[in-house]
Nucleic acid binder design. Structure first.
Lengths: 224, 224
DNA sequence: GCAATCTACTCGCAATGCGAGTAAAACTCC
DNA sequence: GGAGTTTTACTCGCATTGCGAGTAGATTGC
C-alpha cells in the first residue's frame, strides 16, 4: 500500500469540492494550491492514480472528442481519510527561500551580487503576491463568492467558473497567511537591497552599527 | 558530472568559513542551515562527496582514535563556484507549511481540528523562533562576535566555539528575515486559532462578516 | 562497570522532481 | 480555409532527494 503524503491530501481536498478530470486537477494545483503546497506536474498524475489504489477516489474514462480523459471522484472513504488527516498533527513548517540562503553566505561575494539576488527574490514574491491579489479581488467582486454567501445572488458561477462559496472561509485563511508571508519577503528584500547598495563590502567593519541595530531590534521585538 | 543544487552550495558555503569534517558539516546544518535550507542527513553526506568529485573541495582521512573521519576543505575553484552561484538568479521562494494546507481545506472538517492544527503549527514556529532567539542572544552577548567586531576583545572563540565575526553581517540578514517570517506564522496561527474556537462550523454563513473583513483588510494592506 | 548518548558515518528503497515526448483538439491570423 | 500556435490531456524515464535502519567505536554519567 503506497503512503499518503500532504500532496495526496492536497489532491483529495480538491476532489472533495467536486469531481474533476486529471487535467483539471493539475490546473487547479497550478492555479492556487501551488502557493500552499507545490508539487511537480508529473507527480500529480502519479498521485491521482494513487488515490484510486487507496480507494479514496474512483476514475471514469470519459470521451473527449476522439480522445478520452479521466474523471476522478472522491469516495466515502476518501472523505473519511481527508477528515482523519485534518485531525492529525501537521509537520514543521518548511521555508525554502534561495534568496535567504544567498544572504546567509553573502560574505563570500560582494554587495552587488547580494543586492541583485535580493531584488530578484523581492520581485518573485511580488509576482506571487499579484496573483494572490487577483484572488482577493475576485472573491470580493460583485457577483463573486462573497456575494453568494451574503445571498445577494443565487448564481453559483462567476467569471465562467464554478464557485464554492462554502469553502471561502477556509480559503481566505490560507490566502491571508500566504499573503502576509510573501509581503514580509517582498518588503524585507526590497528594503534591504536598497541598504546593501551603500555597503562598501559584505564584511566591512563599518557595517557593525547597522548589524548591531538589526540584532537589537530583532531582540526587542521578542515578546516576554 | 553531477549537478550542483542549492544544498551543494549550502555545504560549500560552510566550508568557505573553515575546513570541517563530514560530521561537523551535518551538525552545522542541523544547527543553523536547517532554518534556511533544510536537507536530509543522508543526503548531506552524498553532497560532501559530490563537492570532491566537482573539484570544489578536498578530503583528507584523518585518525580519530581507532576510527577515521573525513576532513573537507574548500578549493580555489570551490570559492569561484560559490561566488558564481551567488551572482546567479535565485529561484522562486518555496513555502511548505502543512498548517496552511490544512487551513485551506478546513471546510472538510470541523473547527476543533482546524484550531488544533493551527496551535500545533504555531508552537512549531515558536520552537523554531526560540532557537533563533538563542542565536541573537549569543551574537549580542558580551565577548560574542559583535564585541569581536567592535574590537573590544581579541578572542576568536566564544562559548567554546570558533566564531566568524566577519560573517556576522550576512548571517544577521538571514536570521532577520527568517525570524520575521516565523513570527508571522506564530502570530497568525495563534490569533486565528483563538478566533476559530468560536466558530460554529467551518462553513457557517455566520462567518461571512469575518471573512469579508479578512479579505478587505488584505486588500487594503496592498500598496498602490 | 554498564547503559545511554555521542561521534561518524553507510546503505537501500521509496518518494519526488524535471524535462521530454505524444497526439488530438481548438483557436488565430491572413 | 489552411497553416501555425496554443491548449487539452496526459505518459515516461532518469536523476535527485528523503527517510529510516544499521554499524560500530568513543565518551559520559551514575
Amino acid at each position: 500500500m503506497p503512503d499518503a503524503s500532504p500532496a495526496t491530501y492536497g489532491l483529495l481536498g480538491m476532489l472533495a469540492a467536486r469531481p474533476m478530470t486529471g487535467y483539471e486537477l493539475t490546473q487547479q494545483v497550478r492555479r492556487s494550491l501551488r502557493f500552499v503546497w507545490p508539487v511537480s506536474e508529473g507527480h500529480l498524475y502519479r498521485e491521482q492514480k494513487k488515490l484510486v489504489t487507496l480507494g479514496w477516489a474512483t476514475v471514469k474514462t470519459e470521451p473527449a472528442g476522439r480522445r478520452t480523459r479521466q474523471r476522478y471522484a472522491i469516495t466515502r472513504s476518501g472523505r473519511a481519510a481527508l477528515r482523519a488527516w485534518l485531525a492529525s498533527e501537521p509537520e514543521e513548517p518548511h521555508l525554502q527561500i534561495e534568496g535567504v540562503l544567498r544572504a546567509f553566505y553573502a560574505d563570500s561575494s560582494g554587495p552587488e551580487a547580494l543586492a541583485a539576488s535580493m531584488r530578484s527574490t523581492a520581485s518573485s514574491a511580488g509576482a506571487m503576491l499579484a496573483e494572490l491579489h487577483g484572488f482577493v479581488d475576485e472573491y470580493l467582486a460583485e457577483g463573486g463568492p462573497l456575494d453568494m454567501l451574503e445571498d445577494r445572488t443565487k448564481a453559483r458561477t462567476f467569471a465562467g467558473r464554478e464557485m464554492h462559496p462554502e469553502r471561502l472561509h477556509s480559503v481566505a485563511l490560507a490566502l491571508d497567511v500566504t499573503t502576509q508571508l510573501l509581503e514580509v519577503v517582498e518588503e524585507f528584500f526590497t528594503r534591504t537591497a536598497a541598504e546593501v547598495d551603500n555597503w562598501p563590502s559584505t564584511t566591512d567593519a563599518e557595517l557593525t552599527p547597522s548589524t548591531r541595530a538589526r540584532l537589537e531590534q530583532n531582540q526587542s521585538r521578542r515578546p516576554s
